[in-house]
Design a protein around this nucleic acid. Sequence first.
DNA 1: TACATATGATCAT
DNA 2: TGATCCTATGTAA
Length: 266
Amino acid sequence: MPEGHTIHRLAADLSKDFVGAPVSADSPQGRFSEGAALVDGEMMLKSEAWGKHLFCHWESGNILHVHLGLIGKFRPVDPSLPPPDTIRLRLSNGSKSWHLTGPQTCAMVLADDLKHVVAKLGPDPLRLGVRGIRRFLQGLSSSNKPIGAALLDQSLLAGIGNVYRSEILFLCGIHPETPCNAITDHDGEKLWNLTVDLLRKGRKLNRIVTVQKEDSGNVPLSGNEREDSVYAYKREGLDCKRCQNQIQITSLAGRSMWHCPSCQER
DNA sequence: TACATATGATCAT
DNA sequence: TGATCCTATGTAA
């Protein structure tokens, strides 16, 4: 589930559930017992996201740093159920309980560490909105990597993952192999603004929906929620929602990549 | 049961 | 480029 929209939503939901009252923290799995003990019983001051990184700030100055990676999950659960033994971190108060499993990163850090993590990240569309355009365009112009590879580079722009990269390039009509520095400022702005819009929508819906209203009737509904919500991701061999061609799958930067050969000409 | 796969990232070769 | 880490889920055997 985790691209930037998920983490920003997570930060907001955790704030809603935990900021303002003492929180108990423990590690049923045992691998984060020491970290959890550092904030157990404290108040959470705020919870925020930078790209795909989540930071929860506590009274003591300790900061919980979580990166979900590919398979991590952080979700609300029924507080009355016993935690499975795979739960790295459990946060609860009287009425709410959340379970973290399979994170790539789960650590208790200090403000300086947060600063170092954030310093390596490119502009975050959900934090900056239109104000991030300059940095993004500058990043594009100084790289000759294929745009399809660059969009996964968190130092160019923070928060995009493998679903959004295919979808964004489809909607902008850009071929994934196009070198970054061959992309005009006009197209770069389009890329950025579209990314802002899509991530905001994803944060609001808590899922990735990229299909625009005007295209939604072009291909019959499949009944598969994901397939109906996207143009390209995992739709290889299926009809493009904008033309008569079929979506193709390729590999780029070690991950599967999908595009429409006629809507996204080289 | 076993295996493949997953919306990530890092480190080794 | 490939191996590796982390866990859950769906499909195959």
